[in-house]
Amino acid sequence: MSHNILNCITTYYYQIDAILLFFVGLLGVVFSRNLIKILLSIEFMFNAINLIFVSFSSYISNNSYLGYTVVIFSTAISALVLAVGLYFTNILNQKFGTIDVNKIYSKYKEINKC
């Protein structure tokens, strides 16, 4: 039985992989406090979704390129998101002196109180 499973890797396994990667990214977004770590976790989630798109596209038809094309544009969007996010990270670092989300929030509250 195990021999058969190893010989025929279907899109199902790719989607399980993608779901695992998505949840790792989600955990990173929720639990990590570093802004750069959060941005990289968002990139993991983008990658997981791209993997799902490509696996479905290769599963449905070999001549359909829609999923592949969507992935190209999704990659461009994710690069944009990262660039803008890093820019804001740098601005926050200049303003508050840290990239820890909790510290930034507490400092922001202190400034607003005064």
Binding site: S55, S57, S58, Y68, V71, I72
Partner: peptide, 8 residues
């Protein structure tokens, strides 16, 4: 690459 999307 394994899924056949070389360009991606």
């Amino acid at each position: 690459l394994l899924l056949g999307a070389k360009y991606n």
